[in-house]
Computed example of a mutant assay.
Amino acid sequence: MGGDEKVFTLGQVSEHNNPKDCWLVINGKVYDVTNFLEDHPGGDEVLLSATGKDATDDFEDVGHSDNARDMIAQYYVGEIDVSTIPKKIKYKPPNQPQYNQDKTSEFIIKLLQFLVPLAILGLAIGVHHYTKSS
Rank of each mutant, 00 (worst) to 15 (best):
62 V>R: 10
41 P>T: 07
82 V>E: 13
77 V>G: 12
53 K>T: 08
55 A>V: 00
26 I>S: 01
93 P>L: 10
44 D>Q: 15
95 N>C: 01
81 D>W: 03
11 G>P: 03
67 N>P: 00
117 P>V: 10
45 E>S: 13
64 H>K: 04
67 N>G: 03
52 G>W: 07
23 W>D: 11
111 L>E: 03
9 T>Y: 01
72 I>Q: 04
133 S>R: 12
28 G>N: 05
133 S>K: 12
31 Y>K: 02
58 D>G: 01
107 F>M: 13
23 W>Y: 14
77 V>Q: 11
88 K>Y: 02
56 T>W: 00
98 Q>F: 02
41 P>F: 03
26 I>Y: 00
125 I>Y: 01
8 F>R: 07
111 L>W: 06
2 G>Y: 00
88 K>L: 10
96 Q>N: 08
61 D>R: 11
10 L>I: 11
85 I>M: 08
12 Q>H: 05
64 H>Y: 07
20 K>Q: 15
84 T>G: 09
67 N>Y: 05
35 N>R: 13
11 G>Y: 05
82 V>M: 13
8 F>L: 07
111 L>D: 00
5 E>S: 05
73 A>Q: 12
86 P>R: 09
125 I>V: 12
100 N>D: 15
90 K>D: 13
27 N>K: 15
51 T>L: 07
58 D>R: 04
125 I>Q: 03
16 H>K: 15
40 H>V: 04
104 T>Y: 08
62 V>D: 01
68 A>R: 06
87 K>G: 06
93 P>F: 05
120 I>H: 01
23 W>K: 13
61 D>M: 11
104 T>F: 10
45 E>I: 09
46 V>S: 11
71 M>E: 14
124 A>S: 14
65 S>R: 04
90 K>E: 15
48 L>V: 07
7 V>A: 01
123 L>G: 15
103 K>S: 14
23 W>S: 12
108 I>K: 10
23 W>N: 13
64 H>V: 07
11 G>H: 06
10 L>E: 06
38 E>P: 02
102 D>C: 02
52 G>M: 08
86 P>G: 02
1 M>N: 03
134 S>N: 09
39 D>P: 00
37 L>M: 07
79 E>Q: 14
101 Q>H: 13
23 W>P: 12
100 N>K: 14
116 V>Y: 06
93 P>W: 07
39 D>C: 03
